[in-house]
Amino acid sequence: MTTYPVRFLLNGTPVEVDVAAQDTLLETLRNKLWATEVKNGCGKGDCGCCAVLLDGRAVNSCLTLAVQANGKEVVTVKGLGNEDDPHPLQESFIRKGAIQCGFCTAGMIVSAKSLLDENPRPSPDEIREAVSGNLCRCTGYKKIIEAISDAAPKCSPSD
């Protein structure tokens, strides 16, 4: 089996990993780089829980080959902030009760971040459109839309 050396920036840290061509970015993140905050749902682009930022824009890592990430920048929800220094989106999701089981949250916040970087003051409809590729089985979406709306004025692209 041919292996391919792949290098990319993961949440700001350079990583180097040998992969097979058939390894998806999602599997590589979870199983080789222990970035288990990225979730594995449907595997075919429908649910969005595997979303990461690839060179700044949200993509489904289940439909991205690890080799395609070579030389790029990958950001997961962990790259946005942590417990001590949360990103305004993370804070807002907690405060608004936009998280129940939490399985969709990592992808949802990544999609929201991708939106706010392009459109810092989105309307509720624009928010709905931006997270329409992210399924949530628990919250009914209302609180998620509110959380993103609330966080928007507190975010800057450098966050």
Binding site: M1, A21, Q22, E27, C62, L65
Partner: peptide, 14 residues
Amino acid sequence: MNTRILKAEFDYFA
């Protein structure tokens, strides 16, 4: 059907 992985091996060129 397990859609979480690509089962078959293949080569890749860019």
